[in-house]
Amino acid sequence: MAPARYLLWMVLTGLSLAQVSSEFVTADIRRAGSRLACLCGSCKNSVGDCAMLGCHYSLPARQKIASLQAQGATDDAIIDSFVREKGKVALVVPPVEGFFGLAWWMPVVVMGLGLALVYWFIQRMSKPAPVAPVEQRVLDRYKESIEKDLASLEE
């Protein structure tokens, strides 16, 4: 092997070693991983679908999932172990409990408030116009010219 190529190979292996050791994402790893956040700081994916090259978080995390699964741990147990280690930040979405539940409730609440606002608006706007309606007499006076103008617009 030519030295240049060898050097290159060294560099690239260094780059991709971590990648390779956990490249096989089985369906089981993906299922458990989809509930865990990738905390690499530059993506918003879960451990299950983070596909960034040499990701320094999701790859070791997948290995850990794999080893726990090899020991027969359930998904919940795996998630728990991650939460114990990193805190709730390890979860891909906030848990529905206590203050964190607000993350889920607020959009629903706001939607409800919005609906109430729309209802109120429709109610208020359905009342008869506050300005006095134009009398038939005024209409009669202009009707002829309106019809004429409109006819000319219709080409």
């Binding site: 918003k44 994916n45 930040v89 979860l91 979405v93 203050f99 993350a103 607020m106």
Partner: peptide
């Protein structure tokens, strides 16, 4: 509503950390 939910999800980690002191992730699945 969609605007609010996106804004809320984007800021929730900051809000949550300020309120509870605990970091939290709001990621793509949310």
């Amino acid at each position: 509503a969609s605007c609010f939910s996106i804004l809320w999800g984007t800021l929730f980690p900051v809000i949550s950390e300020a309120v509870t002191g605990e970091k939290i992730s709001v990621d793509a699945p949310f």
